[in-house]
Amino acid sequence: MAEHPQKPANLIKWFDPRNKSLGSWAFILNRITGLGLTLYLFLHLIMLGQLARGPEAYDGFIALVKNPIFLVGELLVIAAAFIHGLNGIRIGITSFGIAGGKQKQLFIGLMTVAVIAIVYFAIRMFTH
């Protein structure tokens, strides 16, 4: 009886970009940013939970997140939101037969918009 050489548990191979086309890079990028945003959602809820522990605890937490390391983290969240959101628009459009043949051009165009937006927010965040 022949067996499957690749098991369904091989989810980790989704993240291997070697020898892949632009469509797969978009696929991988969407998964990484999606997981990142999910992680951020939990961290955000933990932060909101500080409100219930009184003003001192909340102010202490806010002082902590003003650290430049956290600012970089926030910029990563913004980057993930732009990349995931704009790529999601591309997937939504093409998934129903609209501009399916132009998915690469759509990806390059929307990611250009994402990069411009990320640079704009980076300048705003680190110069104010």
Partner: peptide, 18 residues
């Protein structure tokens, strides 16, 4: 999930993703 690898490797221009 719209990775479009099928269309990339198709040797017969079927364009399965489309």
């Amino acid at each position: 999930h719209s990775a479009y690898e099928c269309t990339e490797v198709c040797p017969s221009h079927v364009d399965p993703a489309w």
